[in-house]
Protein backbone atom coordinates (compact mmCIF):
# COMPACT_ATOMS: atom_id res chain seq x y z
CA UNK A 1 0.00 0.00 0.00
CA UNK A 2 1.57 3.30 -1.08
CA UNK A 3 -0.80 5.58 0.77
CA UNK A 4 -2.89 4.96 3.86
CA UNK A 5 -4.12 8.36 4.97
CA UNK A 6 -7.14 9.49 6.94
CA UNK A 7 -6.92 13.03 8.25
CA UNK A 8 -9.16 15.96 9.10
CA UNK A 9 -8.79 19.57 10.16
CA UNK A 10 -10.97 22.63 10.58
CA UNK A 11 -9.84 25.80 8.89
CA UNK A 12 -11.89 28.96 8.84
CA UNK A 13 -15.00 27.16 10.01
CA UNK A 14 -14.71 24.57 7.25
CA UNK A 15 -13.89 20.91 7.67
CA UNK A 16 -11.16 19.64 5.40
CA UNK A 17 -10.78 15.89 5.34
CA UNK A 18 -9.08 13.31 3.18
CA UNK A 19 -9.17 9.56 3.11
CA UNK A 20 -6.69 7.96 0.80
CA UNK A 21 -6.10 4.21 0.63
CA UNK A 22 -4.36 3.31 -2.53
CA UNK A 23 -1.58 1.20 -3.93
CA UNK A 24 -1.35 3.30 -7.10
CA UNK A 25 1.97 4.85 -7.99
CA UNK A 26 0.22 8.17 -8.53
CA UNK A 27 -2.74 9.30 -6.48
CA UNK A 28 -4.41 12.54 -7.51
CA UNK A 29 -6.33 14.91 -5.30
CA UNK A 30 -8.80 16.62 -7.55
CA UNK A 31 -11.04 19.54 -6.71
CA UNK A 32 -11.74 23.22 -7.23
CA UNK A 33 -9.55 26.00 -5.81
CA UNK A 34 -10.19 26.62 -2.13
CA UNK A 35 -11.31 23.06 -1.47
CA UNK A 36 -8.38 22.47 0.86
CA UNK A 37 -6.12 20.41 -1.37
CA UNK A 38 -3.02 22.34 -0.33
CA UNK A 39 -3.95 21.99 3.35
CA UNK A 40 -4.04 18.23 2.87
CA UNK A 41 -0.56 18.23 1.35
CA UNK A 42 0.68 20.44 4.18
CA UNK A 43 -0.66 18.00 6.74
CA UNK A 44 1.07 15.12 4.96
CA UNK A 45 4.34 17.07 4.82
CA UNK A 46 4.11 17.82 8.54
CA UNK A 47 3.64 21.56 8.09
CA UNK A 48 0.14 21.61 9.51
CA UNK A 49 -0.95 19.27 12.33
CA UNK A 50 -4.14 17.31 11.60
CA UNK A 51 -6.72 17.30 14.35
CA UNK A 52 -7.12 13.55 14.11
CA UNK A 53 -6.32 10.52 12.03
CA UNK A 54 -3.23 8.86 10.63
CA UNK A 55 -0.73 9.19 7.80
CA UNK A 56 1.08 6.06 6.68
CA UNK A 57 3.12 6.10 3.48
CA UNK A 58 4.84 2.97 2.14
CA UNK A 59 4.37 1.35 5.53
CA UNK A 60 6.00 4.22 7.45
CA UNK A 61 3.88 5.91 10.11
CA UNK A 62 4.35 9.68 9.86
CA UNK A 63 1.41 10.73 11.98
CA UNK A 64 -0.99 8.92 14.28
CA UNK A 65 -3.11 10.94 16.66
CA UNK A 66 -4.06 7.95 18.85
CA UNK A 67 -0.46 6.70 19.17
CA UNK A 68 0.88 10.24 19.63
CA UNK A 69 3.21 10.00 16.63
CA UNK A 70 4.02 13.21 14.78
CA UNK A 71 7.24 13.08 12.75
CA UNK A 72 8.65 16.61 12.19
CA UNK A 73 8.68 17.81 8.56
CA UNK A 74 12.45 17.57 8.17
CA UNK A 75 12.35 13.85 9.07
CA UNK A 76 9.46 12.89 6.78
CA UNK A 77 11.56 12.75 3.58
CA UNK A 78 8.86 14.12 1.37
CA UNK A 79 9.83 15.70 -1.91
CA UNK A 80 7.49 18.68 -2.01
CA UNK A 81 7.11 20.42 -5.38
CA UNK A 82 5.28 23.72 -5.03
CA UNK A 83 3.09 25.49 -7.50
CA UNK A 84 5.46 28.47 -7.64
CA UNK A 85 8.84 26.72 -7.64
CA UNK A 86 10.09 28.48 -4.52
CA UNK A 87 13.79 28.25 -5.27
CA UNK A 88 16.11 29.85 -2.74
CA UNK A 89 16.80 33.24 -4.38
CA UNK A 90 20.18 33.69 -2.70
CA UNK A 91 21.69 30.41 -3.91
CA UNK A 92 22.72 29.30 -7.37
CA UNK A 93 20.83 26.52 -9.13
CA UNK A 94 23.51 23.98 -8.19
CA UNK A 95 23.24 24.91 -4.51
CA UNK A 96 19.46 24.78 -4.67
CA UNK A 97 19.68 21.27 -6.13
CA UNK A 98 22.13 20.09 -3.50
CA UNK A 99 20.41 21.70 -0.49
CA UNK A 100 18.36 18.64 0.44
CA UNK A 101 20.90 16.17 -0.96
CA UNK A 102 23.53 17.34 1.52
CA UNK A 103 21.08 17.02 4.41
CA UNK A 104 19.87 13.52 3.49
CA UNK A 105 21.68 10.58 5.11
CA UNK A 106 23.87 8.93 2.42
CA UNK A 107 21.84 5.69 2.35
CA UNK A 108 18.70 7.63 1.45
CA UNK A 109 20.20 9.44 -1.56
CA UNK A 110 18.89 7.39 -4.43
CA UNK A 111 19.76 9.89 -7.14
CA UNK A 112 23.07 11.57 -7.97
CA UNK A 113 23.38 15.19 -9.08
CA UNK A 114 24.57 14.36 -12.62
CA UNK A 115 21.76 11.85 -13.11
CA UNK A 116 19.14 14.36 -12.02
CA UNK A 117 20.68 17.12 -14.12
CA UNK A 118 20.70 14.87 -17.20
CA UNK A 119 17.17 13.66 -16.58
CA UNK A 120 15.82 17.20 -16.26
CA UNK A 121 18.02 18.73 -18.98
CA UNK A 122 19.27 21.57 -16.75
CA UNK A 123 23.06 21.22 -17.10
CA UNK A 124 23.31 24.68 -18.68
CA UNK A 125 21.50 26.30 -15.72
CA UNK A 126 23.72 25.10 -12.86
CA UNK A 127 25.59 28.35 -12.29
CA UNK A 128 22.61 30.66 -12.76
CA UNK A 129 20.76 32.51 -10.00
CA UNK A 130 17.08 31.53 -9.69
CA UNK A 131 15.93 35.09 -10.44
CA UNK A 132 17.21 34.71 -14.01
CA UNK A 133 15.31 31.50 -14.82
CA UNK A 134 12.10 31.23 -16.82
CA UNK A 135 9.06 29.58 -15.26
CA UNK A 136 9.64 26.20 -16.92
CA UNK A 137 13.34 26.21 -16.02
CA UNK A 138 12.61 27.09 -12.40
CA UNK A 139 10.05 24.30 -12.11
CA UNK A 140 12.55 21.77 -13.52
CA UNK A 141 15.08 22.85 -10.92
CA UNK A 142 12.43 22.65 -8.19
CA UNK A 143 11.58 19.08 -9.23
CA UNK A 144 15.30 18.23 -9.28
CA UNK A 145 15.78 19.69 -5.81
CA UNK A 146 12.92 17.55 -4.49
CA UNK A 147 14.21 14.34 -6.17
CA UNK A 148 17.76 14.91 -4.93
CA UNK A 149 16.67 15.27 -1.30
CA UNK A 150 16.25 11.49 -1.20
CA UNK A 151 12.47 11.53 -0.77
CA UNK A 152 10.40 8.45 0.07
CA UNK A 153 7.39 10.04 -1.66
CA UNK A 154 6.61 13.11 -3.74
CA UNK A 155 3.98 15.74 -3.06
CA UNK A 156 3.16 17.84 -6.11
CA UNK A 157 0.96 20.87 -5.62
CA UNK A 158 -0.33 22.01 -9.03
CA UNK A 159 3.19 22.02 -10.49
CA UNK A 160 1.91 22.99 -13.95
CA UNK A 161 -0.58 25.69 -13.11
CA UNK A 162 1.73 28.70 -13.40
CA UNK A 163 3.24 27.61 -16.74
CA UNK A 164 2.26 28.28 -20.36
CA UNK A 165 0.92 25.45 -22.52
CA UNK A 166 4.24 24.43 -24.09
CA UNK A 167 6.08 24.35 -20.74
CA UNK A 168 3.18 22.52 -19.20
CA UNK A 169 3.51 19.77 -21.78
CA UNK A 170 7.25 19.41 -21.15
CA UNK A 171 6.91 19.21 -17.39
CA UNK A 172 4.00 16.76 -17.75
CA UNK A 173 6.25 14.45 -19.79
CA UNK A 174 8.88 14.69 -17.04
CA UNK A 175 6.39 13.80 -14.35
CA UNK A 176 5.21 10.81 -16.40
CA UNK A 177 8.79 9.63 -16.67
CA UNK A 178 9.24 9.99 -12.91
CA UNK A 179 6.11 7.88 -12.47
CA UNK A 180 7.25 5.21 -14.94
CA UNK A 181 10.98 5.07 -14.22
CA UNK A 182 11.33 5.77 -10.51
CA UNK A 183 10.02 3.68 -7.65
CA UNK A 184 8.41 6.52 -5.76
CA UNK A 185 4.79 7.12 -4.81
CA UNK A 186 3.41 10.49 -5.90
CA UNK A 187 0.53 12.48 -4.49
CA UNK A 188 -0.53 14.95 -7.15
CA UNK A 189 -2.85 17.88 -6.58
CA UNK A 190 -4.69 19.55 -9.44
CA UNK A 191 -7.90 21.29 -10.44
CA UNK A 192 -7.46 20.15 -14.04
CA UNK A 193 -9.41 16.99 -14.89
CA UNK A 194 -7.35 16.10 -17.97
CA UNK A 195 -4.03 16.30 -16.07
CA UNK A 196 -5.35 14.08 -13.35
CA UNK A 197 -6.79 11.46 -15.69
CA UNK A 198 -3.60 11.31 -17.68
CA UNK A 199 -1.34 10.82 -14.67
CA UNK A 200 -3.06 9.11 -11.83
CA UNK A 201 -4.07 5.54 -11.05
CA UNK A 202 -6.40 6.74 -8.30
CA UNK A 203 -8.33 9.99 -8.20
CA UNK A 204 -9.69 11.34 -4.93
CA UNK A 205 -12.27 14.11 -5.09
CA UNK A 206 -11.82 16.90 -2.56
CA UNK A 207 -14.47 19.46 -1.70
Amino acid sequence: MSFDIDIAIHRGGKRIAARIESASRVVALFGPSGAGKTSILQMIAGLLPPESGHIVISGEVLFDSTAGIDVPPEKRACGYVFQDGRLFPHRRVRENLLYGWKLAPPERRWMALDVAVGFLGIAHLLDRMPGTLSGGEAQRVAIGRALLSGPRFLLMDEPLSSLDAARRHEIMLLIERIRDEMEIPILYVSHDRSEVERLAGTVIDVG
Binding site: G46, E74, C78, F82, R86, F88, P89, Y99, S149
Partner: peptide
Amino acid sequence: RLEVVARTLGAGPWRTFFSVTLP
Protein backbone atom coordinates in the same frame (compact mmCIF):
# COMPACT_ATOMS: atom_id res chain seq x y z
CA ARG B 1 7.44 30.04 2.41
CA LEU B 2 11.14 29.56 1.67
CA GLU B 3 11.65 28.48 5.28
CA VAL B 4 8.90 25.92 4.75
CA VAL B 5 10.74 24.61 1.69
CA ALA B 6 13.91 24.19 3.74
CA ARG B 7 12.01 22.17 6.35
CA THR B 8 10.60 19.79 3.73
CA LEU B 9 14.13 19.35 2.34
CA GLY B 10 15.38 18.05 5.67
CA ALA B 11 16.56 21.17 7.51
CA GLY B 12 15.64 21.52 11.18
CA PRO B 13 14.58 24.90 12.59
CA TRP B 14 18.15 26.04 13.38
CA ARG B 15 19.60 25.07 10.03
CA THR B 16 16.64 26.74 8.35
CA PHE B 17 17.41 29.90 10.30
CA PHE B 18 21.10 29.97 9.41
CA SER B 19 20.80 28.85 5.79
CA VAL B 20 17.64 30.67 4.70
CA THR B 21 16.29 33.28 7.14
CA LEU B 22 19.55 34.92 8.17
CA PRO B 23 21.13 35.19 4.69
